[in-house]
Simulated scan of single mutants.
Amino acid sequence: MTLGELRDLAQSIRGEVGKAIVGQDGMIDLLLVAMVSEGHVLLEGPPGTAKTFLAQSFATALGLDFGRIQFTPDLLPGDILGSNLFNFQTSQFTLTHGPIFCELLLADEINRTPPKTQAALLEAMQERRVTLDGESHPLPDRFMVVATQNPIENQGVYPLPEAQLDRFLFKLLVPYPEESEEAAIVTRYGSRSGPPRPADLGVTKVADPAQLANASRVLDQVTLADDIVHYVVRLVRATRDHAELSVGASPRAAVMLANAAQARAALDGRNYVIPDDVKALAIPVLRHRLTLSPAAEIEGRDIEALVSELVESTEAPR
Rank of each mutant, 00 (worst) to 15 (best):
Q221A: 15
H97A: 14
V41E: 12
A253E: 06
A254G: 09
F101K: 15
L165V: 10
I80A: 01
P317A: 14
T148R: 06
A295G: 09
L306R: 00
L30N: 07
P159E: 14
E299Y: 05
V311K: 08
G248Y: 01
L6S: 13
E178L: 10
D74Q: 04
G300L: 01
R7H: 14
I100C: 05
R129P: 03
A263Y: 11
A61N: 04
V130A: 13
K116S: 13
V36N: 02
N154H: 15
T204S: 15
M125A: 08
P77K: 12
T148E: 00
L235K: 15
G26Y: 04
A55Y: 04
A253V: 03
P284H: 06
L173H: 11
G45N: 13
E299R: 15
V157G: 00
F93Y: 12
G45F: 13
A253F: 07
G23K: 00
L212G: 06
V145N: 11
P198T: 04
A119F: 10
V206C: 07
T90C: 00
H288I: 05
V33A: 02
V22S: 08
L160Y: 13
P46L: 14
A119I: 12
R289P: 05
A59V: 00
I283A: 03
V247F: 01
V247Y: 00
R240F: 06
R112T: 15
L286M: 11
V233M: 09
N150H: 07
D268I: 08
L235M: 04
A55G: 04
E179C: 08
E181G: 04
Q24H: 00
A266W: 10
T60C: 10
Q89V: 11
M125E: 12
E5D: 13
L281K: 09
R270C: 03
E315H: 13
R197P: 08
V311M: 03
L201I: 07
L122G: 05
G300R: 01
L106T: 12
V222C: 00
T291L: 08
E182M: 10
V206D: 02
R14G: 13
E44Y: 07
I80Q: 01
T223P: 00
R217W: 12
I283Q: 05
L43E: 01
V17C: 04
R167V: 07
R289L: 05
E127Q: 04
L85A: 13
L30C: 06
Y158M: 11
R167Q: 09
R237I: 00
T314F: 10
G15P: 11
A34F: 08
K51P: 04
E109I: 14
P195A: 15
L76C: 02
I152A: 02
